[in-house]
Nucleic acid binder design. Structure first.
Lengths: 253, 253
DNA sequence: CGTACTATTGAGTCCGTTCAAACGGGGTGG
DNA sequence: CCACCCCGTTTGAACGGACTCAATAGTACG
């Protein structure tokens, strides 16, 4: 596994840092809570691109915090088709829901070379026992995933291919901004057109055509692993995108 | 509101009972925990068909437990299209995620005449403070919703219309069985073909054609508010349906 | 320097749509 | 009591967005 990683140096604590960035957009996290979080998160380990991080159905006793790279939740169909139901960015837990569910309904796979930190469920249980506010923040984090699922459901059900692709590009722009990994111009997106197709319920051939449309309309460009946003407002309008479902405001929980 | 309800008698405590059925499929609930749950759930109130129970974006301080009828989470698009992202059956919380998120990203609407019980967020916070195991069970309940969202995402992305419809009919059969509202023959489904279309990302016209297909293939019939399952195995095979994502096994959380 | 994966483009097909019309049942008001 | 209307359902015909099949480049890697 991980014969040759793009970045051979293990990022030391950036995983927790990005998680904290994500949580602090939504609520205050005290110094004590930060300390507790840091204490339960194991050192990052390298994951090779395309490997299965967590297999569907296996009993689990830990959850994965993504430190670097991108993970996807994938469902494979009998006929070889595949649907990705969420793309994870650094600072996300890829399978925090397994803390209550104890196994996954879908695989978690590495979309490129990644670093992840494991967090034992026993430690999470202790958090819910002794740090109820922090526990609610972790609960919140799984509810954000669910909100993203709902947004994708709406996209798949009611948006045509260009709007669907534009919506995904907008979502990633905002989510990566929260953890400091996007600027106004765009962001690194280490996916193939096949991956995008598997997120969007389309074929790779059609994703290619739709990418060309967005490019020719001066909205966005995706080339060699980088998304360049040329006209965010236009992209947003095309996708009927709103940040509401990402809950970027701070309220006491 | 609620000028004339199909059942004028308020169901007294069946809401909690169905919630307990649902939770006890997944984990043990102690007598004390049951008592705590009963104590925080308000008496049922009637909700008229088609009314908006919770509006997107409004600050919330309580969540709705569905006692009778069916609720849907709906997203309306600019052009008048609508996508339903989840259908709720009795025993479900329709918006328990608002406990951590404090507002909704989508409306909750009554698909027919309903009874719901409100649960104050203050009481839920007390549960997470003093009954951590019960708190984890409520967290579990929102994670089940997320698993259902993912299954719908897969349906919308990768199944054709007949398989998609069959999958929804299978899912409701199982979820209603858990709360004692379905038998092997089928179940009451108080939705219109328009509602089904809004769940499935299809048009009502096409839902009608696909329903005819399922009927002519001897798989299932939907008429006058009732689904009759003629061949569950066939339906299941067509939909590539598995109960895995509904987490029907009991494990300690 | 072959091999495999990714991206790109064209041509033809099909599933689900749009547009349109008709039917049926239940409630309402003249 | 009947006429009317509304809503949900049903069916037909034509359209179109996304797919399939196919072929070609480009690129990374062993």
């Amino acid at each position: 596994m991980a014969a040759r990683m793009s970045d051979p140096l293990a990022p030391q604590s950036v995983g927790v840092d990005k998680l904290l960035l994500k949580l602090r957009v939504r609520d205050d996290v005290s110094a004590l809570e930060e300390e507790v979080l840091r204490s339960i998160i194991e050192p990052p380990v390298a994951i090779a691109s395309r490997s299965v991080v967590v297999k569907e159905g296996i009993p689990l006793e830990r959850s994965a915090l993504l430190v670097q790279g991108m993970l996807g939740r994938c469902k494979d169909m009998r006929d070889g088709q595949r649907q990705i139901t969420e793309v994870h960015v650094p600072g996300d837990f890829a399978d925090l829901h397994s803390f209550t569910l104890k196994r996954l309904d879908q695989d978690v796979v590495a979309l490129n070379d990644c670093w992840i930190s494991w967090v034992p469920h026993a430690a999470l249980r202790a958090v819910t026992d002794t740090q109820p506010h922090l526990g609610r923040l972790l609960w919140l984090s799984t509810n954000l995933d669910a909100a993203i699922h709902r947004a994708w459901t709406v996209s798949l059900g009611r948006r045509d291919a260009p709007a669907r692709l534009a919506h995904l590009l907008c979502e990633l722009q905002v989510r990566l901004s929260v953890v400091g990994m996007a600027d106004e111009d765009g962001y690194a997106l280490p996916l193939t057109q096949v991956d995008l197709a598997e997120c969007l319920g389309l074929t790779a051939v059609h994703v290619n055509r739709v990418l060309r449309q967005l490019r020719e309309q001066g909205l966005a460009t995706f080339r060699s692993g980088r998304v360049t946003i040329e006209d965010f407002k236009g992209l947003r309008r095309l996708a009927e995108f709103s940040t509401d479902y990402l809950f970027l405001d701070k309220r006491p929980r």
